[in-house]
Amino acid sequence: MTDKPVISARDLSLVFETHDGPVQALSNINLDIQAGEFVSLIGPSGCGKTTLLRVIADLEQPTGGAITVNGMSPHEAREKRAYGYVFQQAALFPWRTIESNVGLPLEVMGLDRNEAARRVKHNIALVNLAGFEKKHPWQLSGGMQQRASIARALAVEPAMLLMDEPFGALDEIVRDHLNEQLLKLWAQTKKTVVFVTHSIPEAVFLSTRIVVMSPRPGRIHEIIDCNLGAERPLEIRETLEFQRIAQQVRDGLRAGHSYDD
């Protein structure tokens, strides 16, 4: 069971039909992700990293190749609520309080009220938002809003988190802080995380593997192992090993990027 990949893509491709003709968003993607891994997808804009994440989440349909999530099609996996998705913005409903936002997926699932209340409380505490249950989103900072959206994704109790540049809109100090918290969360919950980012330090700091992607057509350039161990204080970024992996990612990005401009 454990050696079977959670996500498995074979020759996956996706072509968007646009007014300017077809755009090859994904081409020839082969990727296996094992349970409990933290995999980052990194690359410049237009490399298809978000599109790949959206294909896994069944928010986009591939036009070629095959992909399975938990051994099923992404569509079936979505129906079984196999994943929690975290967007670039918190995407909280402004008319709902924090606890009611976190409880939204549970309402949709038709979960028993008591169980829903327990999960809401538990996950709000997990992202350190206890005491803010009754607040509305506008009363919280951007970082707190994004934490609430992570709690919302976790409330579904998925085995997998799909995160699309979740901290991209936040300043670096908040971002460092949330990266640390996310690592702790990952260590506690043993979830599989697929994480889209365009920040090299973020990818190296968080991941067990880094998938370097390149644009036109969107493809995987290189997959880099990143075994810095489970304990990763922020200071690990000063170590030689960290610098070496970061340099490897940087080289990969540079080699994969056709600087045609």
């Binding site: 928010l59 979505r78 129906e79 609520r81 995407a91 409903f93 939204l104 997926p105």
Partner: peptide, 29 residues
């Protein structure tokens, strides 16, 4: 409703009916 909110409801496998009452109606107020 923004595309992101609609995607969110879609990721929960929400029905059209649920998306209507929980998202479209409050957003239209």
């Amino acid at each position: 409703p923004e595309a992101m909110h609609l995607d969110l409801m879609h990721s929960y496998d929400a029905s059209t009916w649920q998306a209507f009452w929980k998202l479209r109606v409050p957003a239209s107020v």
